[in-house]
Design a protein around this nucleic acid. Sequence first.
DNA 1: CTTAAGATCGCCT
DNA 2: GGCGATCTTAAGT
Length: 193
Amino acid sequence: MECRDVEKIFYGSTLQVAQNLLGCLLVKETKDGKAAGKIVETEAYLGEEDRAAHSFENKRTKRTEIMFHAPGHVYVFEMHTHCLVNVVSAPAGVPQAVLIRALEPVEGIDLMRSRRKRPKDIELTNGPGKLTKALGITMEDYGRHFSGETLYIMKGKRPEEISSGPRIGIENTGEAKDYPYRFWETENRFISK
DNA sequence: CTTAAGATCGCCT
DNA sequence: GGCGATCTTAAGT
């Protein structure tokens, strides 16, 4: 059994954590079974100085509260009937997080198919709202830690090559829309765009 | 293949 | 009351 050394993933700057997470395994267990995927795409959201972040200017609300907690906590929020999942990535008091945007299915693929009801496997987890549905991640997971019993991250092999570029879907955030805070495993088929 | 629009609801002002 | 860190479907090329 290899040493997991999971905590190391969550430490370092948020931009480092976003890259540390690539290649790691995201696992969710429910009564229906276990589903897991390799993280292949992430986005960093820096709090205070990042207009695209919910926690811009350290805004502390019911929704962003968990981002002020220790690294490795689970930040889930809903938009348009979809859940999006983030990893809290900065020391307590500094509200930053990393959005998980895409996975490569690894385990429980039949379970993902039944949840997603899509013809092509490529569409199971290649987007932030899609992967939460495929794994069964919901608002129930808000505030948990990624070292829990039913939702956790396992250390994996870092990709040989990592690409970066502007984030997706944040057109109305001024300068922030151009920040190269999106990271993905180069040439992986399961990235969202 | 690409583009466009509608769904639909919790959070925040 | 307005607005999304999105997804799906339908129609156009």
